[in-house]
Design a protein around this nucleic acid. Structure first.
Lengths: 201, 201
DNA sequence: TAACCTACCAAACACTTGTTAGGGAAGGAG
DNA sequence: CTCCTTCCCTAACAAGTGTTTGGTAGGTTA
């Protein structure tokens, strides 16, 4: 009997979808079971609690995210190229784990305080550090404007990237790479039309 | 006996704070009562349901927001000035109604579907319309780049502005106007240092 | 065939939820 | 003083919550 753990994945994906749509607390285990086509009690054959499902969803997302982020950071690109790569990987991650990102975005704020979800705080710290360092390097090397408040800029960039999970739909008319390009163009070059008139490309 | 409705307002502010911190569904009426210094049942002397509190919080926020937005739109400024004014008013609104904005940001997605909160959808439409029109005017008059995807830009701007409610703390080191200026500088001029070297001011 | 496993159901569990009913203390109004 | 209103408490309610327990259908293994 081998083809077993497929059902588990299926249920977990369903749970992620419902969590993302309704919010974790507003979601009942009966609702999840319903959507997955079994009864509430049967969920506990696969998982040992509702919280465990949430935990597993968030961990899978963060693990994959950090594999990609670490690859980018290890490449030691210039600050502008690093920023471009991080943004692009973020939108790709939204494409793959839309539900998980939406959940993270909505719930991580108060989950962070629970001991079980302490790793969220850790991830957040690494995240902030990577971005701040990149922005500061850019200011130092002259790639970015020197009058930037890097902390504010970090928040703006972070928010805009991740909130996209709330409206992005995979298979829509924009690929993740296209969205990343548009976004980078906005944040790097600005929206205003300039005298010199050098719009991108 | 006149000094009555002050307590009501006090309780409502407390509720907003707790809703914002924990999420609406995760918040119990006993928790609200606790924070406000009375017992759960006593809340029903002032309000007729937990949902009513949420409703009143969101309505108060949106009503005030639209007074300000309408004033800006009625002034018939140029597209760039309109965008600047809208962003500034948004950050001011976050300064005044931080909790309400955070709740709106977190919950409006699924509340919109309930009939009682249908006005959220209406507000969202007006909001989108105002922003899209401004961006399109800017592209048409040459104030903004002509290669903008206005719809994507709208989403970026909208998200970045409102998510600020999740990290902004009134009385911090940045005034709403200062944040607005920094943000506008980023979104209008971009982060990249240019050949011409015209950073703002 | 018999033993065994996985995936599920049926039914109940203890607990928490939002909400209600009835009463009481405080204070202004007559 | 008495009446009345405001604000709150005590105590309970029914409904819904996450979870457990015991059992069973059906395929796999021996």
């Amino acid at each position: 009997m081998r083809p077993a753990p497929e059902r588990r994945r299926e249920i977990l994906d369903t749970a992620a979808e419902v969590f993302a749509a309704q919010g974790y607390d507003a979601t009942t285990v009966r609702r999840i079971a319903d959507a997955a086509g079994l009864l509430a009690g049967s969920l506990y054959h696969h998982f040992d609690s509702k919280e465990s499902m949430l935990d597993e969803i968030l961990r899978a997302f963060l693990d994959e995210l950090w594999v990609r982020y670490d690859a980018v950071l290890a490449a030691l690109l210039g600050p502008r190229e690093t920023l471009e790569a991080l943004v692009t990987e973020s939108f790709r991650e939204i494409d793959r784990h839309r539900a998980a990102v939406a959940i993270y975005q909505k719930e991580s704020g108060h989950l962070r305080e629970q001991p079980r979800f302490g790793y969220l705080a850790g991830s957040r710290r690494r995240f902030e550090e990577a971005w701040l360092r990149t922005l500061e390097r850019g200011v130092a090397t002259g790639a970015f404007r020197t009058d930037l408040d890097v902390r504010l800029t970090y928040r703006f960039v972070r928010d805009t990237v991740w909130v996209a999970a709330s409206w992005y739909r995979p298979g829509g008319q924009h690929s993740p790479e296209e969205i990343a390009r548009q976004y980078l163009s906005t944040v790097l070059e600005g929206v205003a039309l300039r005298d010199g008139h050098r719009t991108h490309e």
